Simulated scan of single mutants.
Amino acid sequence: MDLLLMSDTHLPVRAKALPPELLDLVPRADVVVHAGDWADEATLDLLEARARRLVAVFGNNDGPGLRARLPEVAYADLQGVRLGVVHETGPAKGREKRCAERFPDLDVLVFGHSHIPWDSTADGRLRLLNPGSPTDRRRQPHCTYMTARIGSSGLAGVRLHELPPRTPG
């Protein structure tokens, strides 16, 4: 099972559209995960139309329309891997402990908010993943997203992808 992980797309504020490289992967993934801060409903409509399965939440910058359509926390069982998605997890300091306590029944937690890629393991069991942002790199060198795979031995092949700089136009 192939996963495509993204967050903090902030369209059309931070960019006019999703990067073509990322958009091309949407229909190929078995599950697309979006960890909030969409900013517009058009991007949600686009991913719902193109993704085989979408697991998504709203973020702190999402208005009433997105909040009416998406939960604050989403859960999915993906071939026995218990996945959760949330936008905010608080400051980096103490994140592993906080998340392990808040989500004791999960194997993987995908989150966003900071635009800073993150991959760690909490309490020896909970994998924490932040794919960064494909449209707003903030203080990072690149805009990013993640891919991963779920197989018979669980989550594997987690990979951070750096996007090329956007060209004006």
Rank of each mutant, 00 (worst) to 15 (best):
M1F: 07
L5F: 06
M6E: 01
S7V: 02
D8C: 08
T9R: 10
L11V: 07
P12M: 03
P12C: 03
P12R: 07
K16E: 08
K16V: 03
K16L: 05
A17D: 08
L18P: 08
P19I: 01
P20G: 02
E21V: 14
L22R: 06
L22G: 03
L23I: 00
P27M: 04
D30G: 15
V31H: 03
V32E: 01
V33E: 02
V33S: 02
G36F: 02
G36Q: 02
W38P: 05
E41F: 03
T43Q: 05
T43N: 04
L44D: 02
D45N: 07
D45P: 00
E48L: 11
E48A: 09
R50K: 14
R50N: 02
A51V: 04
R52M: 00
R53A: 06
L54T: 03
V55M: 00
V55E: 00
V55D: 00
V57I: 05
N60G: 02
N61T: 07
P64L: 11
G65V: 02
G65T: 01
P71C: 02
P71Y: 05
E72D: 14
E72A: 15
V73C: 03
V73G: 06
A74L: 08
D77A: 13
D77L: 13
Q79E: 15
Q79G: 15
Q79Y: 09
G80T: 11
G80I: 12
G80R: 10
R82I: 01
L83A: 08
L83K: 12
V85P: 06
V86G: 09
V86P: 11
V86S: 08
H87C: 09
T89F: 05
G90M: 13
G90V: 12
G90A: 13
P91A: 15
A92G: 05
A92V: 13
E96H: 14
K97S: 13
K97E: 15
C99I: 07
E101P: 09
E101A: 15
R102L: 13
F103L: 09
P104S: 12
D105P: 10
L106C: 14
L106N: 14
F111I: 09
F111N: 11
F111M: 12
G112C: 11
H113M: 09
H113C: 10
I116E: 13
I116R: 15
W118G: 04
D119F: 12
D119M: 11
D119G: 04
D123G: 15
D123F: 07
D123K: 13
G124I: 14
G124E: 12
G124T: 12
R125W: 12
R125Y: 13
L126C: 11
L126V: 11
R127Q: 12
L129A: 13
N130F: 08
G132D: 03
P134F: 06
P134L: 06
T135I: 08
D136K: 07
R137S: 07
R137N: 07
R137C: 01
R137Q: 12
R138E: 09
R139H: 11
P141K: 04
T144P: 09
T144D: 08
T144A: 08
Y145G: 02
M146D: 01
M146P: 02
I150W: 03
I150L: 04
S152D: 11
S153T: 11
S153R: 14
G154V: 02
L155Q: 05
L155H: 07
R159N: 00
L160S: 02
H161R: 10
L163I: 08
P165K: 06
R166M: 01
P168D: 07
P168S: 08
P168T: 06
